[in-house]
Structures are given as C-alpha cells and as structure tokens.
Design a protein around this nucleic acid. Structure first.
Lengths: 148, 148
DNA sequence: CTGCATGCAAACCTTTTGCAAGACT
DNA sequence: AGTCTTGCAAAAGGTTTGCATGCAG
C-alpha cells in the first residue's frame, strides 16, 4: 500500500473501486508500455513483477478500464485486440503495410469527414481510434528523403 | 457489375487451380449472399445445397479467394471476420452502436482525408473497407421520422 | 496416375467464465 | 464482516491444421 499515486489508481479510488495489488501492477505495466499493447504483452510485463498474477485478471482489469473509459480497444488488423490509454484526446493511426510502422495523425483531419457524414447520412461518427492502413512516406519514396 | 461464380471458376482454371464441386458451391453461396458475410453464414448456405461440405473447406476456400485477391476480409467490430467480394469498388461502413445497423457510405467522402494524409504525412492511404462507429440518424433523432 | 483438395476431428489462439478461496474497505 | 477480486482451470468462439482418403486434371 505504498505506491505512487498513479492517475489510474486515483481514478479507481475516486470511483470507490477496490485498489488491489494486481490492479496496481497492471496499471504500472500499462503506463510503462504506453502505446498499443495486447493483453498478452501486459501479462508478460506484469509477470516480471509478480509471476502469480493471472492472464484472466489482466483481461478483467482491462475490461474494468474500458468500462471506466480510461482505455480503448483497437483492432490493428491481427487476431488480437490492442489497448491504449484514452487520455490524450482522440488520435488515430497510420499503419504502414510495408514496414509496419505506426504513426499518429491529428483528429483535425477527420473534421471534414465527420461533417459530411452528418450532412449526407445523418450519422454521428464516434471516431476515437481509427487505424488507416497504407504506405508510409519512406516506403513509398525510398529515394527521396522527405517523400513527395 | 457483379462477378459471377462462373468467372470465379474461370479465374481458378486460368490460374491452374482445381475446380471442385465444393468450391463451385461455395462460390455460388458467396454470390447469393452478396454482401458482408461470415464464414459461418457461407457454411450455412452451402449446407442447404450439400450438407457434406465442411466448415474447414469454407475457410480454406475463403483463404484461396483472398490469395487471389477476389475477396477481402473486414473487421466490423465483432469477433468474427466478415468477407466481401472485392469487385464493387471501395466502399465503407457506418455501424450504429445503438441499433447495430450497417449503412454504406461513399468513398468520395474520404478524398479530403486522403489528400491531407499525403500532404501532411506523406502517407498513401489504402482504404478499401473502413468501418466507422457512431450513431445513426434514426437513433440520434427518434422524433424526426425521416431524419431530414 | 499424381498431387492437390476434402472431411473429420483435434489443435489453436484469444478471451471469457464458474467457483472456491482470499483480500480490500 | 461483507462484498468484491483473484487464481485456476475449464469453456467458449472462431479459425487453423494433421492426416488419410478422394477426386480433378
């Protein structure tokens, strides 16, 4: 019961949810890995700290964090689900199908699309985590140093 | 401009692949169901014609069609993979998180996004099958009958 | 006839769940 | 103390695979 007051732990306490050592360790792992990670990756990381924590608990904690809207699941094309913290506003990804790099892009680029979806389809898009696949600048133009 | 089962069969022959009754039946089923369908749905359909065709064969045929670039897999948010024939040009989906309806939207709406991704990120987006989640007109405005 | 395709069932992979024991507040 | 959480293992859901048989070319 010493842990540095992580933001995730604080959130739990504020909402009257139990703070167990398992959860604290899982939170640490998520914060440390910080990105788009799978349950399995979190599990591996967590095992370094306490090998008795089970995969099931990782999944249950992840579910909890989703319910609390602190984490979002994303599908990056594979069979596994990726999770990421939801704390720095909506952002999206450009996944290069050639080199596998993942780059973020601004939510602002989606304004036009959102507007048109409302206008043309009366559809309120809720895009928190979009992944777009394609070819990144480096792979598209290996010769030119800055692409285009 | 739908691709007919016949042309799928032709494609197979041209590429020196075997045309088996199973494959022909599966092609028919895909054509008949015509849309975004799961392996299980194809399997059910195929069973009506010949109950001895196995799910494994459906999966193997689907894999073959993917390798031949005649069919694309899509993730529509659930646990299953959806497949669709690749012949009616790029199109995308609006999935209502409230009522579950799936509506298509035009690829034209993505032009702006594509352009900006190239300009700002030198990224060549390859968006063949995007799914956007949100709230459809009916669910957003239950009072307004025609959403207009 | 040769080799690829099929059926069946078992294996796999990721995620979920039932239950008894244990921990947080 | 009471309820929520955990670990374990088994189940579940979707997809893949090993192997012997069968069929297309």
């Amino acid at each position: 019961m010493q842990l540095k007051p992580d933001s995730l732990i604080k959130e739990l306490q504020e909402r009257g949810m139990r703070v167990t050592p398992q959860r604290a360790i899982i939170f640490e792992a998520i914060e440390k890995l910080n990105g788009h990670i799978t349950a399995e990756e979190i599990f591996q990381e967590v095992q370094h700290i306490n090998p008795y924590i089970s995969l099931a608990t990782v999944y249950r904690t992840l579910e909890l964090l989703q319910d609390m809207e602190l984490v979002t699941p994303t599908n990056l094309g594979g069979s596994q689900t990726y999770f990421a913290m939801k704390d720095h506003g909506p952002h999206h990804h450009l996944v290069c199908q050639n080199c596998g790099s993942i780059e973020e892009f601004s939510d602002a680029l989606l304004e036009n699309l959102r507007d048109r979806l409302v206008q043309d389809y009366h559809f309120l898009a809720q895009i928190n985590h979009m992944s777009i696949f394609g070819t990144c600048g480096h792979c598209a133009n290996p010769d030119s140093p800055n692409g285009e």
